[in-house]
Amino acid sequence: MKGEYKGTDGIDGIESKGRELVEAKSASLGVGGFIFRLLGFTFSLVACIVIGLDKQTKTVPIKLIDSLPPLNVPVTAKWNYMSAVLYFLVTNAVACTYAALSLLLALVNRGKCKRLGTLINVLDAFMVALLFSGNGAAAAVGVIGYQGNSHVKWKKVCNVFEKFCDQMAASIVVSLVASLAFLILVLVHAIGIHRRT
């Protein structure tokens, strides 16, 4: 990033070489955008897979009556039991699909059509919102899962389903990285246009 900046700054003063300048800038913009788009795609895909495979079954002893020995009951935690996690998965799937499509489009386009670049930027901003809201939703439910809420008597479940909760936390962190990649994509695009002015 720094090297590109320096390079384009050097040419910046020469007004007559505008065309060359624009090409150099769009090329550097393209590389940065490509890397972050690939990052966004990979991380949202990983987040999807990690949360999609998240399932844990555990036998929990439950004492119904004090005099009887405790009953062993198998309990299962699965991602689709919680709507927020479902939403989280859907947002990541959407972002992943979109990243793949826009990667293809950007490769085909290569900065030729400015209109398409703007459209991709607009959708990038939308993906930022989508991914962040999904992260927020999953994290909020995860916090209740870890700590519970004594005021409304929601008991914590992560002392039972440790593996499930750890996997979910990992997925949220990975998805957060993906959403930051999309955030940086918006910024990279803005910097790219700004350099042309």
Binding site: A77, M82, V128, F132, G136, A138, V141, K155, V157
Partner: peptide
């Protein structure tokens, strides 16, 4: 945008559990 979207998402997730409950983990 990131901050407000995540705040809306987290608030809505908790509110949804409050509205519908979740019988898998016994949150009424």
């Amino acid at each position: 945008l990131g901050i407000t979207a995540s705040a809306t998402g987290s608030g809505a997730a908790v509110a949804y559990v409050g509205l519908k409950g979740n019988n898998h983990v016994n949150w009424n």
